[in-house]
Design a protein around this nucleic acid. Structure first.
Length: 576
RNA sequence: GGGCCUGUAGCUCAGUUGGUUAGAGCAGAGCGCUCAUAACGCUUUGGUCGUAGGUUCGAGUCCUACCGGGCCUACCA
């Protein structure tokens, strides 16, 4: 048994996420967490909402609510949806929690103490009308390079030239339209990532088993141009973690907050403390996951995220950890494996939150149970390149895999047994050659499934699982208990017995992918035996002769052409 | 502009350090079965591996150029 720490990239608070966001982090993280628990490991699976920053303030203003109230409501919404998708977080925290405030301030103090913080006076654009400093991309104007009239302050979308807000001709605030913008001096803290460049480089180079997507992005940032740059970790905002040096005030930094990307990953740690605090446990409980000097030496830490989050997890957050650990007795836990994903596209284009294009998590749950989405998304996870969602593929794949291959297998054998032997596992006969060869095949496939799951090869795991389901149909077809029954009822009984046991086996193996269907099957088979099939032959004897079961309802109803067309239409345009 | 990823059957994808006739699922075709959600099983059609060169006894795999798709490029998160 091992101790496994798993974090999913934390979703931003300003709205409901779409299926592309789901499949890029939370869903594969959940798959892995469920599998690791099923194998008997001690798992800590953490996620949270990322609540700070300008977009949250603006979204709250748009909703006409105080930002803290807005975040509290949206957190509840996202938590409910996560529950709807059966994301099995041990805790779904909030980056605005008191725990994260303290911990973020603590890390900043520690970094300052260790010489990794630099104070820098810089010039920022201030909008008196908006009453705030504006991030570069919230300022638009005419591009000095190509004349495009909606160029953003960081980059022109038309000619792709990188810009400073002060380069823009006739700049204005995208929020208020105000043109009375002025440049003001303001002091900020920078994290001296450059001082840790060589150490980070060596660390990334040692991770030869990480996905190429992960290491190539990290290396690019490490070596591009002048190499890894220092990064501002504070902002002139009201909503955020107040800048402090540990518990002390930070002279000159009054009224400023930490940058979301500084406090967001720290929330992984803080969320664990939120959980153990809620349980009434002391600090040793969360520290045993996050402090190698306090019991976390045997923890293996896995992170899941979309490719857009990779730089922060491979460089910024590790810089925070390494910087805090330097010249210190404290040894904070560094990530051991980063699984990153490409994007999921929607019907020939991108999912778009702003344009309401594609399927959002709440809408998905309105039209189908979560298992349909979980199965399809995971079996098409964008691991090697961007992948594509189309309604035709979704309908065809889900109907075939879930309804025909798995659902119908359960249906055919339970109904056959009921009509010939009644609703209990039949006695008589023995497992012969055909059964032994089934056991041999399953053993081979289950071992392969375990290997792929351990390696977080999501698509390969799904296809191996599907092959395991298919093996049941192949067996039934060749054993043909409906024929055997006429001449040799004892032999038919043994065939039915092993097939009924396959249902429980499938429920156990499939639970990480389709947890609801899995528990329906366990319920139908009237068993709570979720033990992993280390010994397949033993697993296929788990339900003994005489064990009662019931014929389950249709496990997966098929998606009709009418449904598909209706959804296709509904989700083509703008979200209502 | 620079960097990285990607292009394999109608569709979605596998193809280990280069090594016989390039694989799987779906879709299509044929056959079988009748327990089952018109489900299942078996067989089968289908690819000059983006294009053009090169290295090699041998290239889907390595190199170069080009074409197409995607991402990143540091103040959105």
């Amino acid at each position: 048994m091992s101790r496994i720490l798993i974090t999913s990239a934390i979703p931003y608070i300003n709205g409901i996420k779409h299926l592309g966001n789901l499949v890029g982090s939370q869903l594969p993280a959940d798959l892995f967490a469920r599998y690791m628990r099923a194998r008997g490991n001690e798992v800590m699976f953490i996620c949270a909402t990322d609540e700070h920053g300008t977009p949250a303030e603006l979204a709250a203003a748009k909703a006409g609510k105080p930002v803290d109230e807005f975040c509290a409501e949206m957190h509840k919404v996202q938590a409910d949806i996560a529950q709807g998708f059966r994301l099995s977080f041990d805790h779904f925290g909030r980056s605005s929690s008191p725990q994260n405030q303290k911990l973020t301030q603590y890390f900043a103090g520690k970094l300052a103490e260790n010489g990794f913080i630099k104070e820098v006076v810089e010039e920022q654009v201030y909008s008196p009308t908006d009453g705030r400093f504006l991030p570069d991309r919230y300022i638009e104007g005419t591009c000095p390079n190509c004349g495009y009239d909606s160029a953003r302050g960081d980059q022109c979308d038309n000619c792709t030239k990188q810009l400073n807000p002060t380069d823009l001709i006739n700049p204005y605030s995208t929020e208020s339209g105000a043109t009375d913008l002025e440049v003001r001096e303001t002091k900020h803290l920078h994290l001296r990532q450059s001082a840790l460049k060589d150490e980070l480089d060596a660390w990334i180079n040692s991770k030869t088993d990480w996905p190429v997507l992960t290491t190539s992005i990290a290396k690019k940032w490490l070596h591009d141009g002048d190499g890894l740059q220092d990064r501002g970790i504070t902002r002139d905002l009201k909503w955020g973690v107040p800048v402090k040096k540990g518990t002390e005030d930070w002279p000159g930094m009054e009224g400023k907050v930490f940058y979301v990307w500084f406090d967001a990953p720290i929330e992984y740690i803080a969320a664990t403390k939120e959980l153990t605090d809620a349980r009434g446990e002391d600090d040793t409980a969360w520290q045993s996951w996050w402090r190698e000097d306090k019991g976390a030496k045997d923890v293996t830490y896995y992170q899941f995220m979309g490719k857009d989050n990779v730089p922060f997890h491979t460089l910024s957050f590790p810089a925070t950890i390494k910087g805090a650990n330097q010249n210190s007795d404290e040894k904070w836990k560094l990530v051991d494996y980063i699984k990153s994903f490409n994007y999921l596209n929607y019907d020939g284009g991108q999912f778009s939150t702003s344009r309401g294009r594609g399927v959002f998590m709440d809408q998905a749950l309105e039209i189908l149970p979560s298992d349909y989405w979980r199965w399809w998304l995971l079996s098409h996870a964008p691991e090697s390149s961007d992948s594509e969602f189309t309604w035709e593929n979704f309908q065809a794949d889900v109907n075939k895999d879930l309804a025909d291959v798995l659902g119908n297998f359960v249906s055919r054998i339970t109904k056959f047994c009921r009509s010939k032997f009644g609703e209990e596992v039949p006695a008589g006969g023995i497992y012969g050659e055909a059964e032994q060869s089934l056991i041999a095949e399953l053993t081979k496939r289950i071992r392969a499934y375990e290997t792929h799951m351990q390696a977080m090869e999501v698509r390969k795991s799904a296809s191996e699982l599907r092959a395991i389901w298919v093996a049941g149909n192949e067996y039934l077809q060749s054993a043909a208990p409906w024929s055997t029954f006429k001449t040799d009822p004892e032999a038919a009984a043994a065939q039915v017995r092993i097939a009924l046991n396959l249902i429980r086996l499938y429920a156990v193996l499939s639970a990480p992918f389709i947890p609801d269907a899995s528990s329906s099957l366990m319920e139908a088979m009237k068993t709570g035996d979720t033990s992993w099939p280390d010994d397949v032959e033993a697993a296929l004897n788990a339900l003994p002769a005489g064990h009662a079961f019931s014929v389950p309802e249709v496990l997966f109803a098929k998606i009709s052409d009418e449904n598909r067309e209706e959804w296709q239409e509904r989700f083509a345009g703008v979200r209502d």
